[in-house]
Structure formats: structure tokens, C-alpha cells
Design a binder for these strands. Structure first.
Length: 468
RNA sequence: GGUGGCGUACCCAAGUGGUAAGGGAACGGUCUGCAAAACCGUCAUUCACCGGUUCGAAUCCGGUCGCCACCUCCA
């Protein structure tokens, strides 16, 4: 069975076949590291992680490259004249380099917590200036550039397929919707390859055209080619990149090489919060740290995303995350009581699971198979083997469920002290129950609940568990 | 102005021609001194609305209404 993926380039689901089997070469657009990664970023990177794990599940050897955009590029409305990297650096009293490293580190720490496999190659734009210059020179040699006082510009009119990928209508009034960063551009959709004459910009390098810095789009093309060759199997990113960033990547890459830049374009839809766009100004921009502060384990967020499709916008609410965490905790409870796994997995469940994933990464259907298996009357040891195999893709830490449950307990605010105290009360209550003093026993349960625990009378004696 | 998406139970959500997955919540039962946990069961004759095609539609076609995102650095 082959993996089927929705390809933005054709707007249809296609069968995946790599150019250099058994290797699958994936390039993922990484983050611009001027601020904290938020849960919207995680949605996108979890999607590319599921893609990567699914391909590995299917037997491909995945070579995964992700960039780090550590050169600032654009002016934001309120900070006229400086780019975000410079603005952020000034605000925090750091150099742009220090700022980039700080948020880069935060980003990779964050994605590790939701079990995203770190790409084999992480490449920084600032460390590949030479590759970018060389690519611009190729474009210049092929006649796709022109120079203005603002820098070297890509001439989109020389590339007749420019509008195809995003289905842009260039004869419309696109000029009203694309900021005129450079009054000397021939067309509003033309874009910078190398920026000149920005003396206030902190990061600057020498180039054949003068001192300056690379345009945003060129870094991805240059680094993707450096590490994966001129033709990629899959290029991933957020859906917002289709009209500008990926359109420009395709233009500059294909005009330089004459080859198809990427066979598959896989885009993740955006995450909304409470039915609307997530943004700092609305106060609904959340990070993984915010989730943890509210008592959620990072994997609850991963489970939440897996419940729906990467290709559909998802609406984040705290209630929805709560439901996801409850469901995940129940799976962990189940797995923590499984015996040692058998040697052979249950092929029928596994193939149903596989079919779901190969159908354009239908994680929602894949999770349904997980629940079906859990509820089945199959042999527990075989269930364990099968579930752990599925977890190669899901990455919900099923094999270490017991530890995860303990972490969750700690996270939910159950301190060692209060748990100890609750347990002592529970033991006193047990004595009262033996004496049939139920009124007093119920009073003690009230006290235990006030501490944030619920009592469970088990054959092995009373146990306490954090509420909620 | 352009591009794309969405509207399925109380909530999240899968399903793109064959008669509504899954999860959460809720409710009923078993168990229990009472609970908790666990287990069993119940929970959309119906998929925004109207019309059409079809033996058959949540799925296809036409129309209507509503919601959202992107087109500017953006995951």
C-alpha cells in the first residue's frame, strides 16, 4: 500500500513516490526566531512530524531538513523602519544574534516536549549566506533579476508560471494588497533577493552587489538545495505560505535550476482560538508553557491535534484540550496495566491503522483504531505490542504510560506533601469504616477532597488520586 | 478585489455515492455503607437551508444563508 498525500500544487490527493527511493527528502519551513513558539506553530510542526513518522512507518528513509530564519526581514506596521529581529533585540537588550539563539533554543525545547523528532539537519539562514549569494548569481546569470537602489529584485514577469501555484490573479488589484516596499519595482509581486542600503539593519554581509542582507525567500531555496539537492520530494509549511513565500521559492528555485523544485507541497491549516485568529493583541496567543501552567501535559496538545485533520483549521479551546487530556489519560491508564508485549502485533488492527494514515495522514481515523483495539477482547500482550507499534507514529508515550500518568499527577498540582496528608486521612477513614462510623468517614472524605484528592477504596486498601 | 476552508448530536470531530467512526460530557445499570475507579448500556431516522440528479446523497449539481482564514513578517 502506498502513502497518499494531498498536494497543494495539484490541489488533489496523489500517491507518494520519492525521487531517490528508499530515501524521502523533506524540507520544512522553520520559524522566524524573534519570539516564543506558540501552539499554532506546534500544530504545523506536529503535522510534519506525523508525515515524517508515517513515511518511516511505510519503510522510507526520511531525510528531514528544517531551517531557522534568524535574519530579520520585514518592517511591521508599528515599528516603522526596523525589522522585527532588530526591534525585538532592542526591546530585550540583546543583539539580534542573541535574540535569535534564545528563541531558537526555546523552539527546539518546545517541539521536543511534544515528541517531534528533530530533523537531521537544522540550518540557520545566517550560516548560509554564501549559498544564498551563489543562488542569486545563478538567477542573475539566467536573466531573472534587476537592480534597484533597494537591492536585487526577482523579476516575476520573466517566469510565466509565477501565478500558477497559488492561483493568483495578477491582473487584479494585487498592488493594493502587497506592500510597496520598494517604489522602483516593476511589478508589485516582484520580491527582494538581496537587500541594499539599509544602514540601520544590524545584520549585514558583503556581496557582489554591496553590503546588505538576503531577502526572506532565498534562504529556503538555497539551504534546501544545499542539503537535499535541486529537487525535493516534499516541502512542508503553514498554509499562509502558499501565496507569497512558497510561490516565490518556486519562482526563484525553478528559474535557477530549470527543474521542478518540490514534487509535493504539504500545507497545514491554521489554528484558531475561540473561533477567531490567534494574536497577541487579542490576548489569546498561547504557548506550550501556558498549557503546562494550566495543568496540561504537552502530549495532551499533540493528542488534541491528532484528533482532527492537519488540513482543516482547528479551533482551540481550553475545554477541548481538557477533553483531549482526559482521553489520553484513559489510554495511559489502560496501557499502564498491560503485560509485557508479545512478539507479534495484531496485523488486522495494524493494517487498518496503516490504511488510515496512508490516506492523507488521517490521524483521527487512526486514533479510532486505537480505541477499537483497546476495547477489543484480543490478548493483552498482543494489544501491547500492537499499540506500541502504532505509537511509532502517534508518539504519545504509550510504552511509558505509568511515568506519564505520574507526571500528569504532579502537574495537576498534587504536591508530595498534600498527597501524603490525604493518604493519611484516607487511612484514618478506613479505620472508621471498619467501625461502621460512616458519618465520620464521610466527613474525612470531605477533608480529603478539600485537599484536592478523591478517595478510592480498593481491595489493596484506600488510595488517593488528584481530582479532575 | 482575489484565494482557500468550514457549517455533522451538549462539545470536539471522522466520513466525499450505499444507508451516520471515534473521543469528551451527560444519563441509566452492575459494583459500593455511600462514593471513586472499572465494566455494561443509552445518547443524530439525521448531516445549515432550498431545489435537482440518482434505485440510493451528509457525500454529486444549482441556489440561499451563516462563519473563518489567507493575500503584509506570519506556522
Amino acid at each position: 500500500m502506498k502513502v497518499q498525500l494531498y498536494n497543494t500544487a495539484s490541489r488533489s490527493v496523489e500517491e507518494f513516490a520519492p525521487i531517490h527511493p528508499p530515501e524521502a527528502r523533506i524540507y520544512s519551513c522553520g520559524m522566524t526566531v524573534y519570539s516564543f513558539a506558540h501552539i499554532g506553530h506546534l500544530k504545523t510542526y506536529i503535522a510534519s512530524d506525523i508525515l515524517r513518522r508515517t513515511l518511516e512507518f511505510a519503510g522510507y528513509e526520511v531525510r528531514h531538513v528544517m531551517n531557522v530564519t534568524d535574519v530579520g526581514h520585514m518592517t511591521s506596521d508599528e515599528d516603522e523602519g526596523d525589522d522585527k529581529m532588530d526591534v525585538g533585540a532592542k526591546k530585550e537588550g540583546l543583539s539580534p544574534w542573541e535574540l535569535a539563539r534564545k528563541y531558537e533554543e526555546h523552539f527546539f525545547n518546545t517541539i521536543r516536549e511534544v515528541n517531534i523528532i528533530r530533523p537531521q539537519v537544522i540550518c540557520r539562514a545566517t550560516e548560509h549566506i554564501q549559498e544564498q549569494i551563489e543562488l542569486i548569481q545563478r538567477l542573475e546569470k539566467n536573466g531573472f533579476t534587476y537592480i534597484t537602489p533597494a537591492g536585487v529584485v526577482f523579476d516575476s514577469n520573466k517566469f510565466d508560471r509565477y501565478a500558477d501555484f497559488a492561483r493568483l490573479q495578477l491582473d487584479g488589484n494585487i498592488e493594493n494588497f502587497r506592500t510597496a516596499a520598494d517604489p522602483d519595482r516593476k511589478s508589485p509581486q516582484d520580491f527582494s533577493l538581496w537587500v541594499l542600503n539599509k544602514p540601520n539593519h544590524v545584520m549585514q554581509w558583503d556581496s557582489p552587489w554591496g553590503r546588505g542582507y538576503p531577502g526572506w525567500h532565498i534562504e529556503c531555496s538555497a539551504m534546501a538545495m544545499r542539503y537535499l539537492g535541486e529537487e525535493l520530494d516534499i516541502h512542508t509549511g503553514g498554509i499562509d505560505h502558499i501565496p507569497v513565500h512558497h510561490t516565490n521559492e518556486i519562482a526563484q528555485s525553478e528559474c535557477a535550476t530549470g527543474k521542478t523544485f518540490a514534487r509535493f507541497w504539504v500545507h497545514s491549516a491554521f489554528l484558531n482560538v475561540d473561533g477567531t485568529k490567534m494574536s497577541k493583541s487579542l490576548g489569546n496567543l498561547y504557548t506550550l508553557d501556558d498549557c503546562r501552567a494550566k495543568g496540561f501535559t504537552p502530549l495532551a496538545l499533540r493528542y488534541f491535534f491528532l484528533q482532527s485533520s492537519y488540513r482543516k483549521p482547528i479551533n482551540f479551546t481550553w475545554d477541548a484540550l481538557e477533553a483531549a487530556q482526559t482521553a489520553l489519560a484513559k489510554i495511559w491508564e489502560f496501557c499502564s496495566e498491560l503485560p509485557a508485549p508479545s512478539v507479534e502485533p495484531l496485523e488486522d488492527y495494524l493494517s487498518e491503522f496503516r490504511a488510515a494514515l496512508y490516506d492523507d495522514l488521517n490521524t483521527s481515523a487512526a486514533l479510532a483504531v486505537v480505541h477499537k483495539l483497546i476495547k477489543s477482547d484480543a490478548d493483552p500482550a498482543a494489544k501491547a505490542r500492537t499499540l506500541f507499534k502504532m505509537d511509532d507514529v502517534l508518539a504519545l508515550d504509550l510504552a511509558t504510560s505509568r511515568t506519564r500518568l505520574n507526571d500528569l499527577r504532579t502537574m495537576r498540582g498534587a504536591t508530595q506533601d498534600s498527597e501524603q496528608k490525604a493518604l493519611e486521612l484516607a487511612q484514618q477513614r478506613q479505620e472508621l469504616r471498619k467501625q461502621k462510623n460512616f458519618a465520620e468517614a464521610d466527613r474525612l472524605r470531605g477533608e480529603i477532597e478539600a485537599l484536592g484528592f478523591t478517595v478510592m477504596d480498593t481491595p489493596a486498601g484506600p488510595q488517593v488520586k488528584p481530582l479532575g
